[in-house]
Nucleic acid binder design. Structure first.
Lengths: 350, 350
DNA sequence: TTTAGCACTCGAGGGAAAGGAGTGCTAAAG
DNA sequence: CTTTAGCACTCCTTTCCCTCGAGTGCTAAA
């Protein structure tokens, strides 16, 4: 059977109406929405075809039709009018982005919050999670006899520091030598090697040098681990309850658990794809089989990539969400691009 | 009317049974639970008294009784057997606390997670939020011509650092002088003054010095702000759904919103109180009127105090939660006291 | 191919009735 | 004065049945 233009139009009407009203759409409504050029009986014939072709579903024999995941997919791919964000929306998004910049992670978490409030669904944000982070450089700063500050800069230009207490006194004069040692032997290598290298060097050092060295390495390891792990931030979870399909506790529960306790299982985006829409059963995760996810990526500096996603019912307003999310992601890319702070961009040196 | 020993015993039985079964308790059950020494009719007389006195409630005339908030309060204050955590529970808690320590905030967030999993209710953790944090010390480390690392140590011994990019080249040799300037004029004073002092000093400095100075101050301001703000971490939100009283979406919704989007409104603990139990209407927050909260505090080092709380139905298992939470809080105090990291750890040297 | 007409289906909503847990009261017993 | 057995009563819950109406599918005519 062929998918005629009229069938497509009907599918579009059904989908948009269902997105709006959350109840099955009947032939009479469709006939009217299409301008009354055909009768409801004709529509009914078409509807029967669309069900047979798998684009629509019928909750029960005497109900109207709702889109199947396949129907949504067609809608998203072909039928949906790619919305542009309005000037007002753009203005809102931009003003939300003006906030002051802090640590990378908290910026990313905030981005998630903004998205959630912009689209009115729960949202999540994922930090990059680079593969093999190494330390580019160490600095040790004296504090007092029993403590010093370790500063670690990674090759993805994050800088972390911590106050470390020692058991034996460390002379301030020894610190540069120690830092030198660290910078010579412990840069550019990965965590496992850090440990083994430390062991190899141990015999040559006295306890008063080995201890602070070991503490610094331990700290560096934690920094690297933390930098390699991707963190997920979620917000707006309670928006879920505003959706009629999640009045049913069992469904809401699954999603809530995912959004609060199993964040790491939220879908990520294929490389090189700016945006992706995952409809119902297209999701791998069981808890998302009755939901849809829209994910977009943005660039952080030149070589990092952030991810931001929205979770909603299959009936979610794809056109609006997709438009706002992609605009938001693009804005973030721009902001990170032309902006100061976190990752230094290699730009024009005079 | 007098609250006889038998009335108290009945109240205890009712409360504990209701905590367990989540349904009104009838006279027959109580008679049996009390060893059959009295008949259900006697119990019924007592129950009528207890209702009149306000310790019990009757959902409707022909139902059993449930404790009123006043009843819970009496139970918590007098009747409840202060449970001790079992050796096994203690072992579990201790092993959970063995995890490696990282940044203070993430340790605190993790503590929340552990508590939630220990008590099977949602939990939250609040960071201290000291009042007037100042910078104790600045360090500036050269990176390249266009960037340097600012390290800021606050008077509560947190150390934060960030890579800062400059617009004009900064010579590595200038940094110690700059740091000196910072340490002379910008330590021990509060944020507002930082800005004004910077302005006051501005005329004496060339742009190539003023810029990095201003950037460092800006960073320091952010660090202080962040350190003064108290952060709230929540976990285990979805545990709420396991409770029959929150099957009703409208109630669950209020709590969920509180636990996800309005965390800052979660109750805190009065100073000098190690633990507090807030039952139903004793809570200020509207969303908590049908819920109870158990909050405990622990010490972080010598002069900071962390907060950790559990949210559950009024029917929550106070004895168990209180026991585990207070044990956990005490363990945290010990850990922070004698321990590693933040205050770093003294361990055996090879 | 489209349309009007019509019987049919099925869920939602609203009592009515049955079932049952638990009460309150009374009157007798301790 | 307290306790207890007995019993009528209350009221929630569950179940069943009925009605109502939206919407369908099919047929036959345009």
């Amino acid at each position: 059977m062929e998918l005629t233009a009229r069938k497509k139009e009907i599918l579009k009407v059904v989908t948009e109406r269902y997105i709006d009203a959350a109840e099955p759409v009947g032939s009479k409504y469709i006939a009217q929405a299409m301008g009354g050029s055909v009768s409801s009986a004709t529509i009914r014939n078409e509807l029967a075809d669309l069900v047979e072709m798998g684009y629509l579903e019928q909750p029960h024999t005497s109900a109207g039709r709702i889109p199947s995941p396949k129907g949504y997919r067609l809608y998203v791919n072909e039928l949906m009018e790619r919305r542009q964000v309005s000037d007002q929306e753009a203005a809102e998004i931009n003003s939300a982005l003006q906030g002051k910049m802090q640590e990378l992670d908290s910026v990313i978490a905030q981005a998630g919050q903004m998205v959630s409030s912009i689209v009115n669904y729960p949202a999540y944000a994922v930090t990059a999670g680079k593969n093999s982070v190494t330390v580019r450089r160490y600095d040790l700063l004296p504090v007092d006899a029993m403590s010093f500050i370790a500063v670690v800069m990674t090759d993805d230009s994050r800088v972390k520091s911590q106050l470390l207490r020692t058991e034996l006194p460390v002379e301030a004069e020894q610190l540069p030598a120690l830092a030198n040692l660290l910078n010579t032997h412990f840069t550019g290598i990965h965590t496992e090697e850090l440990g083994s290298k430390l062991m190899a060097l141990a015999p040559q050092l006295g306890a008063e040098l080995f201890m602070p060295l070991s503490q610094t390495i331990e700290f560096a390891t934690a920094v690297i681990d933390n930098s390699e792990r991707s963190h997920v931030f979620t917000t707006g979870q309670s928006q879920i309850f505003r959706q009629p399909e999640f009045q049913d506790l069992t469904k809401a529960d699954g999603l809530m658990s995912l959004l609060t306790d199993q964040k790491s299982q939220l879908p990520v985006l294929d490389a090189n794809t700016p945006m992706q829409i995952l409809i119902g059963p297209e999701n791998v995760n069981e808890a998302l089989k009755d939901a849809s996810v829209v994910v977009a990526s943005y660039d952080i500096g030149d070589n990092m990539r952030g991810l931001i996603g929205v979770v909603g019912p299959t009936r979610m307003d794809y056109a609006t969400v997709a438009a706002r999310l992609s605009y938001f992601a693009e804005s973030l890319t721009k902001m990170f691009g032309k902006n100061n702070q976190l990752p230094p961009k290699e730009d024009d040196i005079p």
